[in-house]
Design a protein around this nucleic acid. Structure first.
Lengths: 343, 343
DNA sequence: ACGAATATTGACAGCGCTACCAATGGATTG
DNA sequence: CAATCCATTGGTAGCGCTGTCAATATTCGT
């Protein structure tokens, strides 16, 4: 009798159409564009689908339409807290829509990103969300050929592949250093880990602000390509103190490092902020409740995730933003750890 | 001329077959089971596929075979750090295999879990990884009907749907309380947030251990259904102190709460561990580097994620574990925060 | 050498749905 | 009233791949 069919109890669109007394293509139209049907047929199809518990076969749909309702999401880390809120925004918006999310981990490797982009290309996603703006030329070419809306997240730059939502890590860093300079700090250390492109941009902001103030000193800079952690913050800070015992503030490229610095100050009985100011980046949840509370650059990660999905789905509906680049900005959350004694 | 076809530049299996001089079904067999081909045809197909840059159309494959190479993963939270390492394990193993991961967020709602299970059922995944053991009867029925390997993660219990990998939250909690009792603590508070089934199990362990020691006192227990956070830890602890000023230790159902308690002790100048012992749960990365270092129950989340995918893929290959339930155990990481003065 | 068993290969049909074009009916306009 | 336009609907074909069955070639055993 031929091929294996869907399991008994699983309704096909043809059965919905038969029960509703319409052709299969009309039933199909109901799900794509209900307004294309007359009111009476719309009701009949809806009722039939509900009665039969119809769930579309997504593979059949994708094959026949040469499209899918999958939005690919590529992030560089699953364990870096920074992406948790972004993902929450992405999933929160997508779970209210017809689109599903296909998440992949590039592990901070641009070659892995390239490879995964090719896999996505073959799957014809409805849209794509990629992290950062430093794709290889090959990756950009693949994306250009993909014929779907693409949103680069986490930062903004001059040449969007398609659309971007993010903020300037450079400006955020300049703002943090400016704040420390305003508070009278002159020996401001820089702690960096992983040194991915966005961390590099934060370094650029640090360097330029310190240079402009005539205070740049290479010995103040400690970085590692190793992934970040709270423990790493303590280690890098200890290294910095050994090298430059007279530092009076430290800018950490993320909050894990900042928390590690705080712990290390406690171990060494260095008074914060009186003897050492601490500034972090991303304003993770614990920064406000630490003792003392920790200053950090707040980044709108959840909103970024939401925007990304919304931009993709609206572009699919031919409702693209007037400006393809959305700058969500940042906010320097000044707390106890970076306020001068008299403040 | 008919339907829109794959874009120019994208090879179809039929083209690979033509170039290799075999039939399409032989070319198809090459990808599924290369040993089914003669050595010479195997080489020809491989060469043709490489030359044409063939990437399979997964929708066509899924439709024709009534199967897919997708493993569904359902977790209750994207922002709870506990799941980050699990996901990393899941993605690390799956990215070395032919399977891709379809991740969904149940938001700690068993009804949402039910709904998402039905969507997965329609997609015929190759396997499924679900969190916890408290599925509704409806959810269990859907899973039973799914005809694919299923792994429940995060905890173990007496009735696996199919397979399980986790540990006993109850036993872990008993071990933590026993340790505090051994250290001489008698007024041991319990801080709980969210109160999902696994947290409930930790509470059960706490209650039973305290009851067995004749020390159970309802006033020592502070819980909230609100999601957990570091700030929440401080709040719940303040609440507990107001209610029972003579507590000498506190068991927190997760490390965020424990860090919040530590900060609150600092604010109130409560000496840790001398006046207040603190124990957390899950042993997140920062626990070891806090000041003082914080005791916590270590759970093998990364390995759990790895095991889950491996169990699914091996079951697909008819290599099921001898025992469908894998207990990864836990380890009480005793650190400064819970050691008596003299230890 | 012959027959049986096994390995290899291909033809046919179709998985569930939708793109595209054509047909029909109803509404509007001249 | 007739012509035109628009909305609604359906028929045909097929998207890319694989399940199934049959045919053919090769290997093994007697």
């Amino acid at each position: 009798m031929g091929r294996k069919r869907t399991q008994s109890g699983e309704a096909r669109l043809t059965e919905v159409a038969k029960l509703a007394g319409v052709s299969p293509i009309t039933a199909s139209r109901f799900f794509r564009n209900p307004e294309a049907l007359s009111v009476s047929k719309r009701a009949r199809v809806e009722s039939a689908a509900k009665e039969l518990g119809y769930v579309p076969n997504l593979a059949a749909r994708a094959l026949a339409s040469q499209r899918s309702e999958v939005i690919g999401v590529m992030i560089p880390s699953l364990t870096n807290n920074v992406f948790s809120d972004v993902l929450r925004g992405i999933y929160d918006v997508s779970q209210g829509s017809r689109y599903s999310i296909q998440l992949v981990n590039t592990r901070y490797s641009i070659l892995q990103e390239e490879k995964l982009l090719r896999l996505f290309q073959a799957q014809k996603p409805a849209g794509l969300i990629v992290t950062g703006i430093n794709q290889t030329a090959e990756s950009r070419a693949v994306m250009q050929a993909m014929n779907c809306p693409i949103v680069q997240i986490m930062e903004i730059g001059p040449e969007p592949v398609d659309m971007m939502v993010g903020f300037s890590h450079y400006d955020a860093s300049v703002a943090a250093i400016s704040h420390l300079l305003t508070q009278g700090h002159t020996r401001i250390g820089f702690l960096g880990a992983r040194m991915d492109p966005r961390v590099q941009r934060r370094f650029d902001g640090y360097r330029d602000a310190m240079k402009a103030a005539g205070l740049l000193d290479q010995r103040l800079i400690v970085t590692t390509p190793v992934p970040t952690s709270v423990t790493m913050g303590g280690t890098l800070f200890a290294d910095l103190l050994t090298r430059v015992p007279d530092i009076d503030a430290v800018f950490c490229v993320n909050d894990d490092l900042a928390l590690g610095v705080l712990f290390e100050c406690e171990r060494r009985q260095i008074s914060v902020p009186e003897s050492m100011a601490i500034v972090g980046f991303n304003d993770l949840e614990f920064m406000a409740s630490a003792v003392p509370s920790l200053t950090s650059v707040r980044t709108n990660r959840y909103e970024m995730g939401r925007h990304a999905v919304t931009m993709v789905t609206e572009a699919i509906d031919d409702r693209r933003p007037a400006n393809p680049v959305i700058d969500l900005g940042f906010e320097l959350m000044i707390r106890q750890s970076s306020l001068a004694k008299g403040a």
